[in-house]
Design a protein around this nucleic acid. Structure first.
Lengths: 343, 343
DNA sequence: TTGAAAGCGCTAACAG
DNA sequence: CTGTTAGCGCTTTCAA
């Protein structure tokens, strides 16, 4: 049995004032001015009784939960998070930190069925939601009904209702490919997870093509290796690449976790990186510095992405911004040891 | 302005019954039996109105929030999570999955000051808390006051109040060291983060000593490299190791993330792994398979740890278990490519 | 400057 | 089998 928690009433009794007064000093309303003396008396009572406000009660009346939902993609429907990709951990870490500083908590959750999440959002009275990744359009449409501020991260959903934050994926793909081309590579494999239309990967592919075109290199379907964005597929792609008859001398993998798998797959098949094949990744997660060779990759500022996602959602909740925000964070290429100059 | 949400009253009106009836079918109380016809009528009304219960209201009266708090260590006080160590991501992923299946949500949060978290727990009416890592004893003592079910993960707090789940760290340390010894190594560095008394690392160190003793090898303080459990310190330790005058031929790092840093530091200083120095890690996170060489390491089942942590806390919440649980998950050594047999 | 009182949406006796 | 009702702890008019 839980011990009975001390409520605002107890504090009121202790301080010899009404519960309204307690509420006022708690929220230090500007409208209601309370005498310093009363404030002190209340403060003391609160401290003495060890009073902690009940947020359920508060949110019941104020319609504010101070809770932000974070939706992270799952490996498969109804499965665990994709946390083996360090990107999500790094992102979440940053969101949580920013939210905490502003007095918000994070409710994290995968999504059984997309429908279900909307229920959760309403159940819990989420003040805002940060959604990472791409989901069926129907999900976004339903989400709009909730009237909850939402930030979409790395989604190319163009709906005017949502805030969005992402990077210039196309430019990133371009930079990666161009870097490789400038190092003398012409046959460049493109290795990626699902290329959903108008998604992160499809834009990176566009950038890849941009660079090819700029340098007068013909695009070759056969150099596309499409699977899943995970380590295992990277290995598979690396193995295929090692035995390819297409003469690739380099590969652009659209995620570091993939790139690292590619390197592994390559090595397992007797090829060295970068001596035999050069590899460029994407994201610049922690991993990129950890592996050997360390990874030349397209850097995006993951922490900043998380920070801004949190900031935008909170500002919207607090009515500090009313208009829609669309943020594109810069990318650049960071050269490490996985690319060889073959000029 | 948020559109007014439909409440239980609206459903009652729609279905032509009282709000109590709605509540009954919602919670399908065994005590109260409702006629099938009414149930159906209510169900339809719910569907028609798109009614979603308000959990704040519910938890206000029922004292149940269906929220589980997860406390994850931070890099430094008031900073981001230690999510660069993949251990936490993998753990959290598993906890969330299990909790979600059972209808619970996760509130994740770092802890500004330890005090603050207790406030959060009370603020939100957390039904249970999963705490990963070691905290000051005063924190645990205060936590007890809350009367909330708590599972401690990887803590050696012996307080009878808490459930605990962990692994046999000492045995793990023993296995790692023994493995190295059996491969012919005698000068084995012990590389670790802080060795807090009665913590995970101190137990692993105990196991290290056990193995040494078993094989009649003298323990040598000089082979201890103590810093932080992160990649950077691993590099530093690896560098020191490479220039050591102590003749180490192997190292046991108490976390994979550390081990991977060690390998990096070694390589940067011209040594090869495992040819020149063998390395054993601990955890068997995803990373261990990713790096080159892949890491021989002490495996613990992180997903299972998360699953059981969630299971225990939920069973306690639902009063399915009343007694205290202390779970020790097994460890074993998984041989990969970072150890050389020098016999 | 403070207090009384009306709910927020829901559960759980208790009646009928 | 179903409805009435009294709160849960808090915010917020409105009055004093």
């Amino acid at each position: 049995m839980k011990k009975k928690r001390v409520s605002i009433k107890d504090v009121a009794r202790e301080a010899g004032v009404s519960i309204a007064t307690i509420s006022y000093v708690l929220n230090n309303k500007k409208g209601e001015s309370i005498s310093d003396e009363t404030i002190n008396r209340v403060r003391e009572a609160i401290k003495k009784l060890n009073y902690v406000p009940n947020l359920s009660a508060r949110s019941l009346v104020s319609k504010r939960s101070n809770l932000i939902g974070v939706v992270i993609p799952q490996a498969e429907a109804g499965k665990e998070f994709m946390f083996y990709n360090p990107f999500y951990g790094e992102f979440l870490s940053s969101v949580e930190y920013e939210a905490r500083k502003k007095g918000f908590h994070l409710l994290i959750s995968g999504t059984e069925a997309d429908q279900k999440y909307i229920q959760v959002a309403q159940n819990r009275g989420l003040d805002g939601i940060i959604i990472v990744g791409i989901y069926p359009d129907s999900f976004f449409q339903e989400l709009k009904q909730c009237q909850i501020p939402i930030v979409l991260v790395d989604s190319y959903c163009s709906d005017h209702y949502f805030h969005s934050i992402g990077i210039n994926d196309r430019h990133g793909g371009y930079l990666a490919t161009k870097h490789l081309i400038e190092k003398g590579h012409r046959k460049i494999a493109f290795i990626s997870g699902m290329v959903k239309e108008n998604g992160v990967n499809s834009n990176r592919l566009l950038g890849y093509k941009d660079a090819l075109e700029e340098y007068g290199i013909d695009f070759d379907e056969k150099l596309l290796y499409l699977g899943d964005t995970n380590f295992e597929y990277g290995i598979k792609a690396g193995a295929r690449l090692a035995n390819s008859k297409n003469g690739e001398t380099a590969a652009f993998a659209t995620a570091d976790i993939l790139a690292v798998g590619v390197i592994k797959g390559l090595k397992e098949n007797g090829l060295r990186v970068p001596e035999d094949i050069s590899v460029v990744g994407f994201d610049d997660v922690y991993l990129a510095r950890i592996t050997d060779p360390s990874l030349t990759t397209v850097r995006q500022n993951i922490a900043e992405k998380g920070r801004q996602a949190a900031e935008i959602i909170i500002q919207t909740i607090e009515n500090e911004i009313k208009e829609k925000r669309d943020i594109i964070l810069p990318v650049d290429i960071v050269e490490r040891d996985s690319v060889k100059d073959i000029n």
